[in-house]
Design a protein around this nucleic acid. Structure first.
Lengths: 192, 192
DNA sequence: ACGGGCTTCCTAAGGATGTTAGGTTGTGGC
DNA sequence: GCCACAACCTAACATCCTTAGGAAGCCCGT
């Protein structure tokens, strides 16, 4: 019987794809084993537990999205920079719902520190460079951006913006207004 | 053998408490049945399925939080109104993590329409009355508030604001800055 | 009071999952 | 070519959700 050639990384990647297809809640060791044509306990040579698998997916998604943000952020500043990183998150949440949801998974402080999370924070700071904020204000602004972008992505993904009246503005319209708002807001912070 | 006197509502309430204690992911029919000293299948006379139970918890939490928002919103306007509804969400997410998480559960459009969700939207509109926005802008603003508040609550609950450097500002500080920011932002929208 | 009928709650059973223990076999390095 | 390690397996168990069908409490009419 030939071997499947599994490794922790291949498993995490396949799990991420699976989570995107069926939802992060439906991500199971059984489904993963089925996908590789392998018995479930075989996965334990590479993964440790279901929780461990989820964490691996989260780390993978964090790295991946950090790369995307870094690429989108190259050579832009101000409102364009805001649109770049916000757009990445919005697109990532829409195209990779499973990976995005994994991103929101609470991690232990140790593994969080070793993840791409800090890189995201650095990127957010870079995104704000144009606004010339003080250190403390920059921290506040990073949190504000995180909250707004992630809240927006979450509500959007949950379909909360489709429950409204039929004549309501589209989510894309609101998105532009939100970017405008954040831009003017940060611009006013700098002269506080 | 005396009866436990179960009903759908009592079950939902106990389930909400349980979710607050052990987390919404660990909310199970087994644990609920154990809590009432009852066999698991007995619950199916009142509940339908695990998913149904989760939906009931979500609806309960939506009603409860809408009541809280309505109470906090009485007699205030402007930045105070923002602080009122935002504070309710932040507090609710902290004190009732299970209920809050249930609140984020995607609902069918029909049950969403019959839930307290629209009431939340109305309350948000009331919160914004002081800013005298156009209808479309009000819709944008409602979404912005929702995204910001829920994003903040989620990141806060996930401990994302604790991963930073030791000298970083506290989450309460940032919260005030966010409220300030939203206030000035909406005030600038009104004269657009 | 008392019997009928509805509802509550039960036991039995089956299927899916995560996890552990321990064996077997393919594969790379000496 | 052989040996050790790792990959993969079967067996087994615990936990969960769900369905099917039966027994027993409780309310209502007369």
């Amino acid at each position: 019987m030939p071997r499947a050639g599994l490794t922790g990384d291949r498993l995490a990647e396949a799990a991420a794809d699976l989570a995107d297809e069926v939802g992060v809640d439906a991500l199971s060791l059984s489904a993963l084993a089925r996908h590789f044509g392998v018995a479930v306990p075989s996965l334990y040579a590479h993964v440790g537990s279901l929780r461990d698998l989820q964490v691996r997916v989260a780390l993978l998604a964090l790295e991946e999205s950090a790369d995307l943000v870094a690429a989108a952020l190259a050579g832009v500043s101000g409102r364009d920079a805001l649109a770049a990183v916000g757009g990445v998150w919005r697109g990532y949440a829409r195209e990779h719902p499973g990976r995005y949801a994994a991103t929101r998974l609470p991690l232990d402080t140790a593994v969080a520190a070793a993840s791409a999370g800090p890189r995201h924070a650095d990127l957010a700071r870079a995104c704000l460079r144009d606004y010339a904020l003080s250190d403390a204000d920059e921290t506040h602004a990073v949190r504000l951006l995180g909250a707004t972008f992630h809240g927006y992505a979450a509500l959007d993904a949950a379909g909360a913006f489709g429950h409204g009246a039929p004549g309501a503005p589209t989510s894309d319209d609101t998105w532009e207004r939100v970017l405008d708002g954040l831009d003017t807001l940060l611009r006013s912070w700098e002269t506080r």
